[in-house]
Amino acid sequence: MIHNTNEDIFSHPWETVVHAAWRKYPNPINPAVTGMDVINRRVTEEGVLHTERVLETSFNIPSWVTGLIGLTNPNYSHEFSEVDRTKREMMLKTINLNCTNFVSVDEKLTYKPHPQDADKTILEQETIVTVRGVPLIDYCEKLFLSSYESNAKKGRQALEWVIGNIKRDYEEVIGLPDKLT
């Protein structure tokens, strides 16, 4: 099992980042995500937005490895998320739905305002990769983790790309530059 944590800071307010997070895909920086559906969504009695989605992705790893560990392409993941506007926190947890006998990839993302600077947002990321019952377990785990780390880096750029687009949309529609920032 490999456990990895990572922290990143966006120079945008929490509302902007969270809005962009819902609209992150499709994204040229991370084209691996090819489909996405909302399965359930509601605001709880406490005012927290709960969402379940299914994501369709293609792993960027060699085909001989996918064959070896029985991974399929496309791969499907389940995501559970909570947006709490009172605490100003967005949390997303993702797990793989395919091949759970061979590999599990658990990922948790949390977006919250920077405690010292309201114009910034902190992203905390936690990934746990467990591969079992196949040859070269260490190799496979490292491969998965590096694939996820590369996606995490792309994820940041991907979100910045969406934020740029949303701002442009607003400028075009409302004609108020920087309204969102």
Binding site: Y25, P26, G35, M36, D37, E56, Y76, V162
Partner: peptide, 9 residues
């Protein structure tokens, strides 16, 4: 912006 597709077209 382009739109995300459903898993089923």
């Amino acid at each position: 912006m382009d739109r995300m597709n459903s898993i089923s077209q």
